[in-house]
Protein backbone atom coordinates (compact mmCIF):
# COMPACT_ATOMS: atom_id res chain seq x y z
CA UNK A 1 0.00 0.00 0.00
CA UNK A 2 2.74 2.42 0.96
CA UNK A 3 4.54 2.15 -2.38
CA UNK A 4 1.34 2.82 -4.20
CA UNK A 5 0.63 5.90 -2.15
CA UNK A 6 4.18 7.09 -2.68
CA UNK A 7 3.73 6.75 -6.44
CA UNK A 8 0.53 8.71 -6.33
CA UNK A 9 2.12 11.36 -4.17
CA UNK A 10 4.99 11.73 -6.64
CA UNK A 11 2.72 12.42 -9.57
CA UNK A 12 0.63 14.81 -7.53
CA UNK A 13 3.79 16.69 -6.64
CA UNK A 14 4.54 17.08 -10.31
CA UNK A 15 1.03 18.26 -10.94
CA UNK A 16 1.18 20.91 -8.30
CA UNK A 17 4.62 22.33 -8.89
CA UNK A 18 3.55 23.79 -12.19
CA UNK A 19 6.79 23.17 -14.07
CA UNK A 20 6.54 22.11 -17.66
CA UNK A 21 9.23 20.84 -19.92
CA UNK A 22 7.40 21.49 -23.12
CA UNK A 23 7.68 24.78 -24.92
CA UNK A 24 5.10 26.60 -26.94
CA UNK A 25 6.46 26.42 -30.41
CA UNK A 26 6.37 28.55 -32.59
CA UNK A 27 6.15 31.39 -30.16
CA UNK A 28 9.18 30.10 -28.35
CA UNK A 29 11.56 28.78 -30.97
CA UNK A 30 14.19 26.56 -29.41
CA UNK A 31 17.87 27.28 -29.53
CA UNK A 32 19.65 24.60 -31.43
CA UNK A 33 23.30 23.82 -31.06
CA UNK A 34 25.76 25.40 -33.51
CA UNK A 35 26.42 21.98 -34.94
CA UNK A 36 22.80 21.24 -35.69
CA UNK A 37 22.28 19.78 -39.11
CA UNK A 38 19.39 21.41 -40.86
CA UNK A 39 18.74 22.22 -44.46
CA UNK A 40 21.57 22.87 -46.87
CA UNK A 41 22.78 26.12 -48.32
CA UNK A 42 24.82 26.17 -51.47
CA UNK A 43 27.15 28.86 -52.62
CA UNK A 44 27.74 28.88 -56.35
CA UNK A 45 30.54 31.38 -55.99
CA UNK A 46 32.61 28.98 -53.95
CA UNK A 47 31.77 25.72 -55.65
CA UNK A 48 34.52 24.31 -57.82
CA UNK A 49 32.39 21.44 -59.16
CA UNK A 50 34.74 18.79 -57.89
CA UNK A 51 31.80 16.41 -57.29
CA UNK A 52 33.13 15.18 -53.97
CA UNK A 53 29.80 15.82 -52.32
CA UNK A 54 27.94 13.87 -54.98
CA UNK A 55 30.34 10.98 -54.62
CA UNK A 56 30.22 10.80 -50.85
CA UNK A 57 26.50 11.16 -50.42
CA UNK A 58 25.22 7.83 -49.00
CA UNK A 59 21.97 7.77 -50.88
CA UNK A 60 22.64 9.71 -54.07
CA UNK A 61 20.78 12.76 -52.97
CA UNK A 62 22.95 15.27 -54.77
CA UNK A 63 22.86 15.46 -58.52
CA UNK A 64 25.37 17.62 -60.36
CA UNK A 65 25.22 18.35 -64.04
CA UNK A 66 28.21 19.90 -65.73
CA UNK A 67 28.81 20.61 -69.38
CA UNK A 68 31.69 19.15 -71.33
CA UNK A 69 34.02 21.85 -70.12
CA UNK A 70 33.30 20.91 -66.48
CA UNK A 71 31.40 24.14 -65.93
CA UNK A 72 28.62 23.61 -63.47
CA UNK A 73 25.10 23.78 -64.83
CA UNK A 74 22.89 22.20 -62.25
CA UNK A 75 23.17 21.34 -58.59
CA UNK A 76 20.11 19.52 -57.37
CA UNK A 77 19.63 18.29 -53.88
CA UNK A 78 16.64 16.23 -52.88
CA UNK A 79 15.98 17.72 -49.51
CA UNK A 80 13.34 15.15 -48.56
CA UNK A 81 15.52 12.18 -49.39
CA UNK A 82 18.57 13.51 -47.65
CA UNK A 83 19.46 11.90 -44.33
CA UNK A 84 21.27 15.02 -43.06
CA UNK A 85 24.48 13.19 -42.34
CA UNK A 86 26.68 16.20 -43.21
CA UNK A 87 29.17 14.18 -45.20
CA UNK A 88 28.84 16.58 -48.13
CA UNK A 89 29.82 19.50 -45.93
CA UNK A 90 32.65 17.48 -44.46
CA UNK A 91 34.31 16.59 -47.74
CA UNK A 92 33.72 19.88 -49.50
CA UNK A 93 37.12 21.57 -49.78
CA UNK A 94 35.75 25.07 -50.22
CA UNK A 95 32.72 25.24 -47.91
CA UNK A 96 30.36 25.55 -50.84
CA UNK A 97 27.67 23.38 -49.30
CA UNK A 98 26.76 23.79 -45.66
CA UNK A 99 24.08 22.45 -43.43
CA UNK A 100 22.45 25.42 -41.78
CA UNK A 101 20.57 25.15 -38.54
CA UNK A 102 17.28 25.81 -40.28
CA UNK A 103 14.74 23.05 -39.89
CA UNK A 104 11.70 25.13 -40.69
CA UNK A 105 10.98 24.26 -44.26
CA UNK A 106 7.99 22.57 -45.79
CA UNK A 107 6.75 21.41 -49.11
CA UNK A 108 3.40 20.35 -50.40
CA UNK A 109 4.55 17.79 -52.89
CA UNK A 110 7.64 15.70 -53.38
CA UNK A 111 8.71 17.96 -56.20
CA UNK A 112 8.65 21.00 -53.94
CA UNK A 113 11.34 19.33 -51.90
CA UNK A 114 13.92 18.99 -54.62
CA UNK A 115 15.97 22.12 -54.50
CA UNK A 116 17.99 23.42 -57.38
CA UNK A 117 20.95 25.67 -56.90
CA UNK A 118 18.95 28.87 -56.81
CA UNK A 119 16.72 27.57 -54.06
CA UNK A 120 19.67 26.18 -52.19
CA UNK A 121 21.35 29.52 -52.41
CA UNK A 122 18.33 31.33 -51.01
CA UNK A 123 17.89 29.22 -47.90
CA UNK A 124 17.66 31.52 -44.90
CA UNK A 125 19.73 31.08 -41.82
CA UNK A 126 17.90 29.97 -38.69
CA UNK A 127 17.75 32.93 -36.37
CA UNK A 128 20.42 34.50 -38.56
CA UNK A 129 23.11 32.15 -37.34
CA UNK A 130 25.81 31.54 -39.90
CA UNK A 131 26.78 27.90 -39.39
CA UNK A 132 30.35 28.39 -40.50
CA UNK A 133 30.88 31.12 -37.96
CA UNK A 134 29.12 29.12 -35.27
CA UNK A 135 31.21 26.07 -35.92
CA UNK A 136 34.42 27.99 -36.50
CA UNK A 137 36.29 27.07 -33.30
CA UNK A 138 36.27 23.40 -34.09
CA UNK A 139 35.82 22.99 -37.80
CA UNK A 140 39.33 22.13 -38.66
CA UNK A 141 39.54 19.55 -35.96
CA UNK A 142 38.83 16.50 -38.04
CA UNK A 143 41.31 17.29 -40.71
CA UNK A 144 44.46 15.76 -39.41
CA UNK A 145 47.87 16.98 -40.34
CA UNK A 146 49.17 13.55 -41.02
CA UNK A 147 52.44 11.96 -40.15
CA UNK A 148 54.29 13.55 -43.03
CA UNK A 149 54.24 10.39 -45.09
CA UNK A 150 52.66 10.38 -48.45
CA UNK A 151 50.09 7.66 -48.77
CA UNK A 152 49.29 6.96 -52.37
CA UNK A 153 46.26 4.86 -53.12
Amino acid sequence: MIGLLKSMATTMKHALDGKTFTVEYPEEAPDVSPRFRGIHKFSQERCIWCRQCEKVCPNDTIQIVTDDKRQGEQYNLHVAQCVYCRLCEEVCPVDAILLTENFEFTGDTKHDLVYNKEQLGNVPWYKDIDPLAAREPDRGAWVGEGDGEVDYQ
Binding site: V32, S33, R35, F36, R37, V83, Y84, C85, R86, L87
Partner: peptide, 14 residues
Amino acid sequence: NILEDLTGQRMMFN
Protein backbone atom coordinates in the same frame (compact mmCIF):
# COMPACT_ATOMS: atom_id res chain seq x y z
CA ASN B 1 20.40 18.14 -25.77
CA ILE B 2 23.89 17.21 -24.66
CA LEU B 3 24.31 14.96 -27.65
CA GLU B 4 23.00 17.69 -29.89
CA ASP B 5 25.61 20.06 -28.57
CA LEU B 6 28.25 17.44 -29.19
CA THR B 7 27.26 15.86 -32.48
CA GLY B 8 24.74 18.16 -34.07
CA GLN B 9 21.79 15.84 -34.09
CA ARG B 10 19.44 14.41 -31.53
CA MET B 11 19.04 10.93 -32.82
CA MET B 12 20.91 10.13 -36.04
CA PHE B 13 24.27 11.28 -34.83
CA ASN B 14 26.75 10.21 -37.50
